[in-house]
Structures are given as C-alpha cells and as structure tokens.
C-alpha cells in the first residue's frame, strides 16, 4: 500500500474542489454585497452560499472516515476529529461567555466555529504525533 491511500487522495481532491468553490463564492458574495445592485430577498441565499462548501468539507471529512480502509489511519483521524471538536466547543463556549459579560466585542471577526475546528484538526495531528508517533494524514 502506498503512503497515501486512495481514500486520502479522494479526500484531498474533494478538499481542493470545495476550497476553490469557497474562495469563488466568498469573493463573489463580498463583491456583490459591496458593489452589486440591491439584492432584496436574494441577499439570504447569497450570504449562505460561501457556507455551503465549508459544510461540504465536513462531508468530505466524514466520507474519508468511511472510505479509509486502513484501520490505524482511521483511528488516528478519529482522535484528531475528537480533539478538533473539543477544541472548537471549548473556544466558542468561552468566547460566548466573554461576550455575555461584555468583555469582548460582539461578533466573531470572521472567525466562525469551522475555523476553530480546522485549527483543532492541526492540534489533533500534533497530539497524535506526540502520543503515538504518527500525525496521520
């Protein structure tokens, strides 16, 4: 078996397509909101559009877990995803309480929960490397 499994290759391909869609939709939405005509009710789907490829990345991650046949690699990634979920929930929970007591300004400065989840995946990889000697994919 090569170092990169077919499941990982499929995941990376999906990730590249989805991130390309995300960049396109994000720039299109920002441009249209700033320079386009009055959007009316279309503003709603346009605002949601950049979120769809991000949701697609969650789908791609789950597909990878299902399609990966190497059980050790799968276990590494499950650990990574659990750490990412814990990190994301911790950060967003703390942030909400700080906002509730007016210690930080409202809004998230563009850093949604997904950003913290993806950062958490990186942390999960580091934890795997230190505890098991393998970071995973």
């Amino acid at each position: 078996m090569s170092q990169t499994s077919p499941a990982v290759r499929r995941y990376l391909k999906r990730l590249m397509i989805l991130m390309s869609c995300y960049l396109f939709l994000l720039f299109a939405a920002v441009w249209l909101f700033r320079h386009g005509p009055a959007l009316g009710v279309l503003a709603w789907p346009l605002a949601v559009a950049p979120a769809l490829p991000i949701i697609g990345v969650f789908w791609a991650v789950m597909r990878w877990l299902i399609e990966e046949r190497d059980e050790y690699q799968r276990m590494l990634f499950v650990r990574q995803a659990l750490i990412a979920t814990g990190f994301c929930l911790t950060v967003t929970t703390i942030w909400e309480f700080l906002q509730s007591f007016d210690l930080v300004p409202p809004g998230n400065g563009g850093f949604g929960a997904a950003v913290f989840w993806f950062i958490g995946l990186g942390i999960g990889g580091i934890v795997n490397k230190f505890t098991l000697g393998d970071a995973g994919c």
Partner: peptide, 18 residues
C-alpha cells in the same frame, strides 16, 4: 493492505489490531 505506519504501530504495541 495497510500502511507501513500501521505495521509499525502494531509491532511496537501502540495499536491493537481489530
């Protein structure tokens, strides 16, 4: 049909195979 890392993890006792 597993990765080299899987073999290493099993050999070193870091991972118990199914």
């Amino acid at each position: 049909e597993v990765s080299r890392q899987s073999v290493n993890a099993i050999e070193t006792g870091k991972y118990d195979p199914s």
